[in-house]
Amino acid sequence: MRKEALRTFLLSALIAFLLTFMLFTPWEQDKEARLFFKLIILLLMLTVLLSYVQSIKQAERIKRVELTYTVIRCSNCNYKLEREYREGDFVFKRVGICQCGGSLYIDMIYTIKPQRPSKPWLLR
């Protein structure tokens, strides 16, 4: 991640330098050289854009951590409790007694993946 950011920064700095160089140099005489410089700058800008896209995709992958929940129900009444999964939980495990006297058991354990954030149009 840090490597990606550093690469983007270095490329951006290089583009800025080349642009400044181009602005303060009298090019009127040499059209080919100006074209050549423009091409290089265009390619570098494309590289920066790709690097940026890649870093966003990587950040997305890191952010999307799965979350697991345990649903506890009472065998007698409509009591339902949802909490985070703990080690040792398994479905149909008896976990206690309800206030109504019925036994509490794990009814469901499920995992959810957070939704992907909506992407900018360029990345779709």
Binding site: T68, M108, I109, Y110, T111, I112, K113
Partner: peptide, 12 residues
């Protein structure tokens, strides 16, 4: 082969 998802658990 992955952890059971909510929509699948709810299908039970």
């Amino acid at each position: 082969v992955g952890a059971m998802k909510k929509e699948i658990a709810e299908a039970a």
